[in-house]
Design a protein around this nucleic acid. Structure first.
Lengths: 321, 321
DNA sequence: GTGAAAGCGCTAACAC
DNA sequence: GTGTTAGCGCTTTCAC
């Protein structure tokens, strides 16, 4: 493996000058530059990235952290990786199985193994995580108000109210069911707030059929099984993602429940599952959330101005509702 | 940041001994070890990973390379990352936009930035890629016979024949349509071989409705639009993935074509799309393919014996066929 | 604009 | 079992 010294020798200059050429410094004469490029070409020299990383204590790697895999995770990853690559960063993926492992990854920021962090979902509390923000930029699509962690979130409160109002005004129903995420999540809290206010305005509509599933995998199926056992189940059910809705619908249909005749279903996030199964849903512009997050990380890393793209969610009415 | 020397000083030993403790060498007396651990704890010492990487010219990072994102890519990534993490490796994701960028990633093997490579899909030819196998283990779930690149593949030839036979024996159809992948891919070639032999055995069944889409995105929709324009279209259509089948079916249904009454559809790979849309498909045990690939990479990296898991695909008949 | 020299923090070959 | 020593390849002051 030819190194910087070989090139310097061949081009009759010092290591420093070669280094300047390859790290893009402008303080090199055109003549030296030519000589060096020629020598490097001839020797097939390529800078050793590991040495550079070690020297600068910077890897140009951004960590992508999730607790589990579900389709939206893949989409987020794809969006983020594309932008990162464009800007000269690569993306390292971590599926954390417990708090400790997540702390390990967070520590990578401190150890300069990762330059920045995008959090899909977390195991430790935000207060623990915030502590690491001083070691490098962290961003997330989760809702969190913090000056140290950037968050490109959708406020589920007005959105959920909008959906509830839409249902109230469109169908003659006396009960609405809710398949919700983890009680502790701010999105869930926002939805519950929306439900409570809605119940206050429309006391005739029953919103008590509520199920909570912290994990998306299997949630829809379980919800459907519970639904089937419910006497007098709601005529409309709102799921917290298209993926969960898809699973819910397909399990119901297996048990001869007709969607939308017997029960109407609303998804959330406008994923491929929603599209192909024709599920009514809300487009929350996941891609823009991802773009905002990665752009924020990179602009903080490079001390550039961050331009945030504003997101306006949109209801998409299809055939399940 | 406290370094190995600080710990050595505090524990009254040499750097080497400290290094031995933290790199897991057994040749350290229990007494020294205790002293060192205590000193490290007190100073909050953590080995600098970048320095170690630089020294060993090894990063414990495995590259995951794909040309584009579709759901199976996400599943593969999730399977691979879990195993890699378990064994002390992390996974770096690359979506390559052209041949050159892919070559860049391949070069990372040579530059010791990546220890191994898992290829989901590629832009350069296998002969080009093979050249890099000497720099580190490469594996893929694509079909390729090579001693340098490990491949955990499913032979589509007997499988496709099995599906065709199943259709022939179950339905009274005189034509079968095929939505296929890139003509150049060995899976596609294997399927065409199966079709040709099948046509020879059953000359009354027309297999001429064949469409080719190198990319999964949009393939199903386009195929459906072509299908709608075809006079006398086939009564059974085989798609090359559940994802494509899902898109195909949902587009047909939008145009009032009833699946399975008007046309029966077969998917491939038994993904969530297949499950939720109740698409008949083939389980090719993607997870085992991924496990084989990552285990192969790691065992080659660590000079351990590789235990391959054998895969036997399975037809899954659901409601679209 | 260029070169000399000092490290970044670690590992591993060698000697004892 | 432990210490000495020589780097890994690069960047970055600091002179000139």
């Amino acid at each position: 493996m030819t190194n910087i010294f070989d090139v310097a020798k061949k081009a009759n200059v010092s290591k420093s000058t070669v280094s300047r050429v390859f790290s893009g410094s402008r303080h090199v004469s055109e003549k030296s530059r030519q000589k060096i490029i020629a020598a490097a070409d001839e020797l097939g020299y390529v800078p050793n990235i590991l040495a550079r990383q070690m020297r600068q204590q910077k890897t140009n790697i951004i960590g992508f952290v999730a607790t589990s895999y579900y389709p939206a995770v893949g989409s987020l990853l794809s969006y983020i990786t594309h932008i990162a690559e464009e800007k000269g960063y690569s993306v390292n993926v971590y599926f954390t199985k417990d708090k400790e492992q997540e702390l390990n990854v967070l520590n990578y920021l401190k150890l300069h193994v990762l330059d920045g962090l995008f959090l899909v979902s977390t195991r430790n509390g935000w207060n623990t995580i915030k502590e690491f923000a001083k070691y490098g930029p962290i961003s997330t699509w989760r809702r969190i108000d913090s000056c140290s962690i950037y968050s490109s979130y959708i406020d589920h409160y007005p959105l959920y109210k909008q959906i509830l109002l839409y249902i109230e005004n469109t169908y003659e129903v006396d009960s609405i069911g809710h398949i919700l995420n983890d009680r502790k999540k701010s999105n869930t809290k926002a939805r519950i707030k929306a439900i409570n206010e809605f119940e206050h305005d429309y006391p005739c509509t029953d919103n008590n059929w509520q199920l909570f599933f912290p994990e998306q995998g299997g949630a829809g199926k379980q919800a459907a099984l519970t639904y089937l056992k419910t006497t007098n189940p709601p005529k409309v059910v709102l799921a917290y993602s298209d993926y969960v809705a898809a699973d819910f619908i397909s399990t119901l249909r297996e048990h001869q429940v007709d969607v939308p005749r017997d029960v109407k279903v609303f998804g959330f996030d406008n994923s491929d599952f929603g599209k192909y199964m024709n599920i009514s849903t809300v487009d929350t512009y996941l891609e823009i959330q991802a773009i905002n997050c990665i752009n924020n990380i990179i602009s903080r890393l490079e001390n550039k101005k961050f331009e945030e793209i504003k997101i306006t969610p949109k209801l998409i009415i299809r055939t399940t509702c």
